[in-house]
């Protein structure tokens, strides 16, 4: 049984516009790293946000661990604990110190006491190399540091699935590498990951599978070697030409 199965997902924000998602189906096995690429507005963020229901899908099914999470009976807050999300703009809680950004979920969602939460938070910060920033506020961090806290905050909840929405797009070029290497390490540890990114290097080296989306649909999917170097579909070819030209 796959960890996650998405069936015929449709999202219509505004009936006047074309659907943001127009029948997307995919499966993710446990331990798999799936990279999603595609032009701006193709629905990548919408897909990721539908999976943890930050966005309510218009139609379709999302089966996570054998359970349809769109079922109104489902406690979505329980499901979300198992899905970590990392945002392009970090979205660290501005009024909380780094350590409290991580402890909040542990204490309020998982019901841990402070000592236990602190221990886990510090372990997470050490893993991303930021133990010395525990008492800083988010505004005092560089973008790269902030994103590492964002990753640590999501990982602290001990999720089964990690969703990354362009985690390096808001970073200065010299800071991208640090985040990518944390994500690679995570992939090596067999974390199941869904990653929207323009970092073709990460896709090549860490992805098991790459999906190309355009206009709310999956145009093509396959192993990174095939999809990135020898794509079948002309739209994929055209997109890759532009992206590769831009980043390399």
């Amino acid at each position: 049984m796959p960890l996650l199965e998405v069936r015929d997902l449709v999202k219509i924000y505004d009936p006047a516009d074309p659907p943001a998602l127009d029948g997307v189906s995919l499966t993710v096995e446990k331990g798999e790293v799936l990279v999603i690429i595609g032009p701006s507005g193709s629905g990548k963020s919408t897909l990721l946000r539908c999976i943890n229901r930050l966005v309510e899908p218009t139609d379709g099914e999302i089966i996570f661990k054998g359970q349809n999470i769109l079922d109104p009976e489902v406690d979505i807050n329980k499901i979300r604990q198992e899905m970590g999300m990392v945002f392009q703009t970090f979205n660290l809680f501005m009024h909380l110190k780094v350590i409290d950004n991580i402890r909040l979920g542990l204490i309020k969602v998982k019901g841990m006491d402070e000592t236990e939460a602190t221990k886990i938070a510090m372990t997470m910060l050490e893993q991303v190399g930021l133990a010395d920033k525990a008492d800083s506020y988010p505004a005092e961090l560089s973008g790269g540091q902030a994103q590492r806290v964002g990753i640590a905050r999501a990982l602290a909840m001990n999720p089964t699935l990690m969703l990354f929405d362009e985690p390096t797009s808001a970073l200065d070029p010299e800071l991208v590498g640090g985040i990518i290497s944390i994500m690679k390490k995570l992939a090596d540890q067999h974390m199941t990951m869904l990653v929207v990114t323009h970092e073709m290097g990460f896709a090549r080296e860490a992805a098991h599978r790459v999906i190309f989306m355009d206009e709310g649909r999956i145009v093509e999917e396959g192993p990174p070697k095939k999809l990135l170097q020898d794509p079948d579909h002309p739209r994929t070819q055209e997109f890759l030409k532009r992206v590769v030209f831009k980043t390399e």
Binding site: N52, L54, N77, K78, R80, Q81, M83, G84, M85, F87, T89, N91, L92, F93, M94, H95, L104, G105, K108, V109, R153, A154, M157
Partner: peptide, 29 residues
């Protein structure tokens, strides 16, 4: 910014918890 609430909800906090621990303390300031 809406990203604050989204980050809270993505951790599994309820709407009320997100308001209480994330949004209102920032709004007060």
């Amino acid at each position: 910014p809406t990203g604050q609430a989204e980050a809270g909800r993505s951790l599994g906090l309820t709407y009320a918890q997100t308001m209480r621990y994330i949004i209102i303390p920032q709004a007060f300031r």
